[in-house]
Design a binder for these strands. Structure first.
Lengths: 341, 341
DNA sequence: CTGTTAGCGCTTTCAC
DNA sequence: GTGAAAGCGCTAACAG
């Protein structure tokens, strides 16, 4: 047992009941709103609560109810601004609903991910907001299947039948392409993410589609790698070595853009004069860059809020369908007309 | 009671005991390492654990032990990259020690802060890693006084007697000044943070001290405001209007730098040609700016790790003294010699 | 409606 | 060393 000798520090439900002159059960029910009491008794209890500064012990509550009023936010890396921003909106929405959020960082390690899913399965948390950005070999989908309330964010876990919220990556890719097209570009570069990630495929697909839909005569060079600074740097190195390099570039994530920008500067390529550029994500402070970088912005805040709403709502019977959050074009100054067509 | 009719989903300690042919108490003690069992029984238990896929129920454990193996990370805003980075190192260090971290965002609201402190006081979490960046009127210090294990990070809560970890702001300010001095500057600008925050005062103090220590004939203009983009923008507006504006600028936080940079660009001032600039924090991606921004970097990761260590260590008897983490000069390209002395 | 009672699953004192 | 038993503080059947 926990407290051996020392006098109890904080009032318990029993204490409140004693002071109010009712049973603990009555207090519990009243405080949880599962009963309506005559004014008189209600007041007595309220007074006792205030007087004793009573606060229910969450551990006892959780054990008894078999639920915790905690949700777990599972992310690959909380230092990543995208996930940090997501965490902010998740925490806010959760707090509004009296839910605490436990931060679970996976570094994309499958074992850790599964461990957290297991935690949900055992009801140690009420819901899981799950983000992974590595392809699944089926293990995650399996783990998630019977775990309970999990909602998958940002990146898909293929074949898993749970609520999902994604950005409209395809539309975003298309928006990027159209902007570049309208600026007059005809030779495009695309630095994409891992081909086995849904988001990467979709962004690329959207970009290609919009180009295909245009009447214009168009050339594209595509490179794929991680959503990382290093990958962006490597890809742009290759691209600018080309015979006739593109005049416009679509970077499929912020880190890719950062990597590209760094190399471009080192090689003395000017953005946007030598190369127009548009990024995807817009969680880095691109508005403060020189030039400010035009971007397709994800609705990270909306994603976080919706996720907790869904996670906490009654599970719907109808087939779960992925929600698609619209993305937004943020025009800044990194896209201009090509110098020479 | 939680589970009424349905068969229990997961094995309990009793189940393990039954299978292993010992008492629950024995299993508990064995699993917690508070006893050494004969090989035979130990094996029996191990087998049972594996067979039943037993995992202790944390809620029950917490209720019984009166502690939770959870620490709360209290921050003003997790979307802020500084706190996000801190959260990353905290989570990592906590996970290594089997501690979960609960994310608590305050938006600098005193009531929320005190609410979280109260949570600690009642042992709902084992420790509090506390960051606030608004001045305290004494309420926080009072709340923190008897709450238990709290360690204060990054910014002081004056008069509170708890373990604290800060960056060596003073030294950082001095480093910035010396770098600028050595580059040949004699007219300086400083955009500082709120004068009632320790970090802001210290950074300024260090800067002034280093200037004072130099033999050079020196002029300084100082502006103070929030650690915010808006404040940085407002301050730089005023500074560049001056008769003979500074040739070098020390911005006491990343957001200030961002604000300043934006205005400078709008006014067509070139960094570093027209104005050398150095920032403090270095959590924004300043390495990717054009030019890359020279910075005094805080050891955010170290701060997080140390905080967890201290929070979880046996409370020391000796007077708690604030730990000072060294800062580091990261030379990039935003500081050059002044054009005209 | 209200109170009594039996747990939730674990830890730990205490007696064997 | 080992087990029985009490209890952490709360909730929810069940009876009155």
């Amino acid at each position: 047992m926990s407290q051996s000798g020392k006098p109890r520090l904080h009032a318990t439900l029993r204490d409140v009941a004693a002071v109010a002159g009712v049973s603990p059960a009555a207090v519990s029910r009243y405080l949880n709103g599962s009963i309506v009491l005559p004014h008189h008794t209600a007041e007595k209890i309220d007074e006792a609560v205030v007087q004793l500064r009573y606060q229910p012990n969450p551990h006892a509550r959780r054990l008894s109810r078999g639920r915790s009023d905690m949700i777990a936010l599972v992310v690959p890396d909380i230092a990543n601004p995208f996930f940090a921003q997501l965490a902010a909106s998740v925490e806010e929405a959760a707090a509004e609903r009296g839910q605490a959020v436990v931060l679970c960082v996976t570094a994309n390690h499958k074992n850790r991910e599964i461990e957290y899913i297991e935690r949900l399965a055992r009801n140690y948390v009420d819901a899981l907001l799950f983000i992974t950005n590595h392809p699944d070999d089926g293990d995650l989908a399996a783990a998630v299947a019977n775990a309970g309330r999990v909602v998958v964010l940002d990146e898909d876990i293929a074949t898993s039948q749970v609520p999902k919220i994604f950005s409209d990556n395809e539309a975003g890719g298309a928006m990027a392409a159209r902007l570049l097209l309208e600026a007059g570009h005809r030779r495009f570069g695309l630095i994409g993410g891992p081909k086995d990630l849904m988001s990467a495929r979709e962004r690329t697909a959207g970009f290609r589609r919009a180009l295909a839909e245009s009447a214009a005569d168009v050339e594209t060079v595509e490179r794929f790698g991680d959503y990382s600074v290093a990958a962006g740097a490597a890809a742009i190195e290759a691209i600018i070595e080309m015979q006739s390099p593109p005049t416009a570039l679509f970077c499929c994530s912020d880190p890719i853009t950062l990597g590209a920008l760094k190399v471009l500067r080192a090689r003395n390529w000017k953005v946007p004069q030598d190369l127009s550029l548009i990024t995807f994500d817009d969680v880095g402070p691109f508005d403060f860059f020189d030039p400010p970088i035009t971007a397709i912005r994800q609705d990270v805040t909306g994603m976080g809020r919706r996720a907790v709403e869904i996670a906490l709502a009654e599970p719907k019977d109808d087939t779960v369908e992925a929600i698609r959050l619209p993305v937004q074009l943020v025009e800044r100054a990194s896209v201009v007309a090509p110098r020479n067509r």
